[in-house]
Design a protein around this nucleic acid. Structure first.
Lengths: 342, 342
DNA sequence: AACGTTGCCGATAACGATTGCATAAAAAAA
DNA sequence: TTTTTTTATGCAATCGTTATCGGCAACGTT
């Protein structure tokens, strides 16, 4: 391990570490000649300042932490790419961690990142998180936090989300317009913002079209699709409902693909027996059998926006901040899975 | 930012930092009573040692870096979950970074992780990496590195990969057995290990069945599917080949889904006009239209194994190490996309 | 009584970098 | 020539932690 330090340079050039340090940062009070010598030597020896030492001294790390439920999910991986695109341009590194829809993991990861002195956090809540004390505590200690996608309601900070209400409304309205009437909704844990907003959009669309809301058509999966049995139970209850729904509006990649699998496994056809629209960013949606109608979110842009918000929080004096909640438009792509057969 | 340090504890209890430090680590030379006091106070104040200070002092970070092409890829995200499962059990954190198939990004990420003093690296090479000097240099400086999936040939360290040769052989043999004869191969950059091994398996299967190898049926995508135009060009060349192939054996998620899209867009049917088998871990393979036959890799296990190798390298005295190259079995799942119509 | 042993604890120096303050030498002003 | 100012550099503290070394009682042994 022969890594060159400022001390090595100082020794080699018979200078003090302070002089070397200042020379490297181009301080005006260093002799231009000395500066040149130091710069050249540092260049030649491929000197790189030790970021750990800097973190210790400055209590920051020029990196931002991202905590999301799963990377194996197109929405989140696209969002991360958005985060990276902004972060790198502004000189920050990105540290990714997954909570796997577990409160416990979220807690551990949050604390880890805080200890590692990330300069800020971008968070999409786990399916189990209704207690947000760990974030609140961090925030009072000065850690900037921006939520995206799954945002807490009673929490004052920047938030970025898709317009889940409108997205859900459009999806449901589309199904109604196609002639479906018994429309079920398969969704994530009830306490998540995305769940609530989508549910409201779904209900509103039904109401506006004079269709009564049937509570037994609404199924929550409190582990967000991480536990196959839970999804299976929910879907089977729908399929074997005395008045079987003729369409499902489902949230999330996993819930949607699982539903499709199960419907097929049970010998039913999509969309003839049950139509389906997913709230998902699956890139292979158009390749599915049948091609999947989907409400897609601008994941990349959401990641970008959240990051701009966060870096703003980090770099701007606190006093001048007014917190915002931004909603980005979703897009409904209609494909075969939601078309009423003639 | 009121984080409690060992110094604060020392001051509060009227002890020296050394005593507090030793008490916390349970040193035998501290009075049990003092120990109890310190422990209790630390517990009450929720003291956590500063990992940055430890990293600086010990020149290590109890974390391992993972550098992969893309997280938006089921194979890699499953592999990461495997890595995490082992790492967390053994007290290491995992830092993920993507190279997006770019040599430049790989270089930057490698250096970043090295500067951050990760204790070791788990790497799957970018599609552009034929120069491995950056890894070699790190390794001579003492950084343990384990490669997986895309492994370099002339590099002495632990390596973990799927048995690409056998996987490709089985896929190709399956197509032949189905009655296909003009079998094309759409694959990743030619210099990658996975490309070579799969190509060899493909060729061997053709040879063993007396089918001549047609070079114009073999298409490399030197950006591994990251550039849509490149894939499009390759697939279209196959589709419009004077002797159009009746089957494609394709590598990678992106290459496979792109091929399916393009074949459909060009008005051809799968498998009637062109059959397809993918080398992919797409979780929605069974939901595609048609259901996709695929060679899948034990991604999770590969991640686990690579991590065990790495932690072994990190913790074991160097002298006792004998480097291994492990190949794990792939699994061919036959679905509709590769079945010859009657 | 002199010496050695133990038990318990503290001061200090690292790790790598930055920075406020001090200071030497050189240049400018008196 | 003397004083002041400027220029260029070094010293030392700091960030949080631990390892090394050493100190000082209290006790036991001869």
């Amino acid at each position: 391990m022969e890594v060159i330090t400022i001390k090595d340079i100082a020794k080699a050039l018979n200078l003090s570490t302070s002089t070397v340090s200042r020379a490297l940062r181009g301080s005006y009070e260093i002799n231009p000649e000395t500066k040149r010598l130091v710069m050249e030597y540092a260049e030649r020896m491929n000197y790189r300042p030790n970021p750990i030492a800097l973190s210790l001294k400055e209590n920051r790390s020029r990196s931002i932490g991202v905590i999301i439920p799963e990377i194996a999910n197109n929405f989140f991986s696209q969002a991360i790419n958005g985060v990276e695109s902004i972060a790198y341009n502004r000189g920050y590194h990105v540290v990714i961690s997954q909570n796997h829809e577990s409160y416990e993991r979220e807690l551990v990861n949050t604390q880890y990142l805080a200890q590692r002195r990330v300069d800020g956090l971008i968070v999409s809540l786990s399916g189990e998180s209704n207690d947000l004390e760990h974030f609140k505590e961090l925030q009072t200690k000065g850690m900037p936090i921006v939520f995206f996608d799954r945002v807490p309601q009673d929490y004052i900070t920047h938030k970025v989300s898709a317009d889940n209400f409108v997205g859900a409304y459009e999806a449901t309205a589309h199904l109604i317009q196609q002639g479906f009437r018994r429309i079920a909704h398969l969704t994530s844990p009830s306490w998540l913002s995305i769940t609530y907003e989508r549910l409201e959009g779904y209900k509103k669309a039904l109401q506006n079209h004079g269709i009564p809301i049937e509570e037994s058509y609404i199924k929550y999966c409190s582990h967000g699709g991480m536990i196959p049995e839970e999804v299976e139970k929910a879907v089977l209850e729908l399929i074997h409902h005395p008045e079987r729904p003729d369409a499902i509006f489902s949230a999330g990649d996993r819930l949607t693909t699982s539903s499709m699998s199960l419907i097929k496994r049970e010998g039913l056809r999509i969309p003839e027996d049950i139509a389906i629209v997913g709230f998902t960013n699956l890139i292979s949606a158009h390749l599915l059998n049948p091609a999947l109608s989907a409400v897609t979110q601008p994941a990349y842009e959401m990641g970008q926006l959240a990051t701009e918000f966060l870096i703003d929080l980090i770099e701007r004096p606190k006093s001048t901040i007014r917190f915002e909640t931004k909603r980005l438009e979703t897009k409904l792509v209609i494909r075969q899975s939601s078309l009423k057969p003639a």
